[in-house]
Nucleic acid binder design. Sequence first.
DNA 1: AAGACTTTTTTAAATTTTTAAAAAGTTTTT
DNA 2: AAAAACTTTTTAAAAATTTAAAAAAGTCTT
Lengths: 404, 404
Amino acid sequence: MPEIKSSILNTNAKAIKSLYYNESLTSTEVSAHIGKSIPHTIKVLNELIADGYVKENGYAISSGGRKPLHYSLITDTHFILSVAMNQYSMQLVFMDMNNNFITALAQHQLNTATLKVDSLFNLINDYVKSSAIEKNKILGLGLTMPGFIDTAKGINYTFLDVQGQSLVDYLQHQLLLPVFLENDSTAIALGELKFGIAMHQKDAMIVNLGWGIGLGMIMDGKIFRGHSGLAGEFSHIPLVKNGKLCTCGKHGCLETEASFIATIGKAKAELNLGQISSLSSYEEIDANAIMTEAIKGDVLSVKLISEAAYNVGQGIAILIHILNPASIVLSGIGSMVGKLWLSPIQQAINEHCIPRLAHDTELLVSNLNSKAQIIGGGALVVENIGKPLQAKMNALKKELSVDL
Amino acid sequence: MPEIKSSILNTNAKAIKSLYYNESLTSTEVSAHIGKSIPHTIKVLNELIADGYVKENGYAISSGGRKPLHYSLITDTHFILSVAMNQYSMQLVFMDMNNNFITALAQHQLNTATLKVDSLFNLINDYVKSSAIEKNKILGLGLTMPGFIDTAKGINYTFLDVQGQSLVDYLQHQLLLPVFLENDSTAIALGELKFGIAMHQKDAMIVNLGWGIGLGMIMDGKIFRGHSGLAGEFSHIPLVKNGKLCTCGKHGCLETEASFIATIGKAKAELNLGQISSLSSYEEIDANAIMTEAIKGDVLSVKLISEAAYNVGQGIAILIHILNPASIVLSGIGSMVGKLWLSPIQQAINEHCIPRLAHDTELLVSNLNSKAQIIGGGALVVENIGKPLQAKMNALKKELSVDL
DNA sequence: AAGACTTTTTTAAATTTTTAAAAAGTTTTT
DNA sequence: AAAAACTTTTTAAAAATTTAAAAAAGTCTT
């Protein structure tokens, strides 16, 4: 990675980001994105061209005036490694600067709760090695997973303990790559905000329909994390009357009623009671099984998803009352069958919201085809270009005298 | 108001704001507040001195180095009119630039729901006239009241209809003063954020314990209003099981259980049932009566407030789960007996929150002695110095050829 | 096809920020 | 107790950035 003069590092990084998020822009547009004047923007773009990050991209059609020169990122010189985990699996892939997967996506079944950090390192390291991509071409690793995560400190307080040390520091030293850690639901929100259906939205709530029910919050156009990074504990608000006992120690959490973990449990119970369903042909019932059969029209599967959806809708009604978002986005693996969730959720919103508020909020389904978390992990790396963590990594490189 | 060069208007306005919020600052501090270099800051300050807004304030003690020159606002040349309404009353007062009341506070009993705009104008206009303050010395009117308010458009959709026209436009034309409109709970939040216990906080929820239960939200150090300005509809989230019917059409809202309107109703019902209480000596029971007797130790009054508080606490628990705020601030008239609210609310938080979240959030009582709304109304005016609405007012002055 | 109108790019002037130096104190050391 | 060392603010000069104006390169209208 060529050296960027520190005085303008931040502006150059912003220009790179604007092109990463937009593929192709004119100088005028880049200027608006980075908040600098056009002469200065053009100077910055020329520097980035000289440094090999950006290329000119021909003249665009004009709306009546001089044709603007378009600029875009050179996408095949720097790559991003995105590692997306949930409670029971992990996906790894390299992306170019246009979100194209440039290696075969790898998937491992595992249990995040019992996974050890060195196993995690080995899985990632093996993937990097097998990809044969040189490390100096890797912009960084975006690691996204469930848990109470302190992004700034790089610690996951729920999983992957490194004796209270920073998981990010550990992995950076081992992998010799810049590493950025984020909660899975927040990563999904970032994906939807930057490349998905929440693009350009100011206030949107991104619901992660996965093994659990997660929430990523976009407020004032930015990811919102709260005072200590724990905002969005949506699935543990007291909601359902006389509900089951939750892992959090309380009763009636959304988690126990609407997550896929809960739904799978309900499915098994129903089958045990002799309920007829195509689910009975599965050896092990998982989220995919229920969604697949629901699409085919299996009555039990549809009923289970509808019940979960109505409960999620009650939680969403609370969100709408408090935050008055422009939209609610259904994302995560559950969004594969997004349409099945829509009407029960809308029903619950209509029943539980003041009409004016319900009217002002749109209910949307992700258009990223369940890839929001992986894409968000990539965006996480680019978001952090030029930030302190990057500086820290550069210091590390020097310390180890490694030319990455 | 002397003409401010438009090119630097915004910077000058920011400098004025920084001094309004801090009484006395050094050039270095002003520089940090307005985000400009020190040489530029000193230039701006000298302009403001020349324009009669700012004065030098002597040398301060130094922590080891050259003594810094202090700057402060000239507080007696420009004044702010703050009009604070709730459902049943209205307070008017002029403040100087140090939040000192410079006229006697006027109070009117009225019903906001039935009040007409011309009556409102007359009440305000009479107060301005009786104050004998020249209009060119009045920076503006901060009008704060309950209702669904669109701050940008200057419309209150709930009260004081001007046939769908802008209430702000109407009052500006009638009063020939810049007018700024804001929801009461949001104004309280602004007061607490700028001058109260939430000063310098990034993420705080300000609960307005009044005739209703309101919420003003501070997120990322700024007032949060949501997509269409309706965020904070805290008191209509479905909360209490088998609750009473609310004016919003639903059952179990916090409003029906914890607001003073509800509490007064409960008090009357209890007295009718023969419950012994010092409240029975009152001709008409209002919020003040209950608070006064609760302080004196009246069992019924204390019980009523405790019940309300526990219910509010359940709602706050939901807020904490979703938003992970640094603090919850109890404000509004109810905060006069803030200590009575504290333990039942904390109890509810402990019962209904994940411990880690409960632990990260502080429960505080306002230190503004129920003046948060009036002070917030003043801050509202200063916040808007140099903003579009001000420009609009200037245009209006020109149009009418009035030298205000 | 010429002139009017748009929009982008370049150039030059003005403004603002950054960096460095000077001024004015306080604290430590001898 | 005076000098040296250290802090912090203020001033001055240099560098960077923005603003404004002009030039360039189009499109659209008559």
